[in-house]
């Protein structure tokens, strides 16, 4: 995979890359009920061509599904059941807090590209795609989009997202969970730097009705800080100040804390049936989408 195949900076997705994404689909480890007819097997019994089971006839059942051959043999009415095919809800929560507007490559751009790619894959596979921007709450969302025709709308929405406000994962997730009761695949794209703690937010969306994928995205400058001297560090989100004198022990301690933080997040997510993925913005975007997300089972 080369950088040349990745989208240009000013484009979230370039046509060549979109063509490659056409071959992918959003996968869910759960059989989730959809809302409309679609291309994905549902838990419900329906009218597809695939036989599922028999059951006794009850009054009111559609007579077209009675198995007359069995009636002839057994003189009892049995109803033939078929698997239903419905659409899949794909939720993408993208963190647009100010902390994401950092690093080189920029975290916010990176997150938007991932969100756009996931949205594109969902739309072309006739899934119900909903992209939600969050900061200190839900900032904006596309609403349910379906079909290839909505790709333009989706990309337009994502590209217009601007970093704003502080992270407040708890309120955002809570509102999301209350507003979106339809089961589906939920991809949370964030750095998960929330002073209130990611646990308070993720507990609304982990387990239960969502098949959770938590993608933590950090810039190289956060992973390997290149700081020197006596510094006054200003938090981008809340303008909180931290006075530090950079020393080797401090850097070492910072890295240890970061590692512990990420491991804690991973542990929290996986224990609740979710999937955790760590991504550095130094990893080419297409590598993340085409390789890492496939390896984690989000795309197939």
């Amino acid at each position: 995979m080369t950088v040349a195949q990745a989208p240009k900076n000013d484009l979230l997705l370039d046509p060549g890359f979109m063509a490659r994404l056409d071959q992918l689909d959003v996968m869910s480890r759960k059989l989730l009920a959809g809302k409309m007819k679609g291309e994905r097997r549902s838990k419900r019994r329906g009218q597809s061509m695939e036989f599922a089971d028999y059951r006794n006839y009850v009054v009111g059942d559609d007579l077209r599904f009675i198995d007359w051959n069995i009636y002839a043999r057994l003189d009892r009415l049995f109803l033939k059941l078929f698997l239903e095919e419905e659409d899949l809800s794909v939720y993408v929560i993208i963190d647009v807090s100010r902390s994401c507007d950092y690093g080189n490559p920029n975290k916010a751009l990176y997150l938007k590209r991932v969100a756009a790619a996931l949205g594109y894959i969902g739309l072309v596979n006739y899934n119900r795609v909903n992209i939600v921007a969050m900061a200190d709450g839900i900032v904006a969302e596309t609403g349910a989009l379906r079909g290839r025709r909505r790709v333009g709308q989706m990309i337009d929405f994502v590209s217009k997202l601007r970093p704003t406000g502080a992270s407040h994962l708890a309120s955002a997730c809570k509102r999301f969970a209350l507003a979106h009761r339809q089961k589906g695949v939920l991809v949370v794209l964030s750095d998960f730097f929330d002073k209130g703690g990611y646990e308070n937010g993720l507990r609304y969306v982990a387990g239960g009705k969502y098949d959770l994928f938590a993608v933590q995205c950090l810039s190289p400058q956060e992973i390997e800080p290149d700081l020197q001297g006596d510094l006054k560090l200003r938090d981008m989100e809340d303008d909180d100040m931290a006075e530090v004198s950079i020393t080797q022990p401090l850097i070492k301690q910072y890295k240890a804390n970061l590692n512990a933080y990420c491991l804690g997040l991973k542990d929290y997510v996986t224990r609740r049936g979710g999937t955790y993925l760590f991504a550095s913005t130094s990893v080419p975007f297409d590598t993340l989408v085409l390789n890492y997300l496939r390896e984690r089972g989000l795309l197939g």
């Binding site: 002073k195 938090d235 981008m236 006075e243 301690q253």
Partner: peptide
């Protein structure tokens, strides 16, 4: 002290406290 902007002071403060 030179002022520098970071995404979050969360981990820095914690590192300083730990030290």
């Amino acid at each position: 002290r030179r002022e520098m902007t970071v995404p979050s002071t969360l981990l820095w403060k914690k590192a300083v406290q730990d030290l």
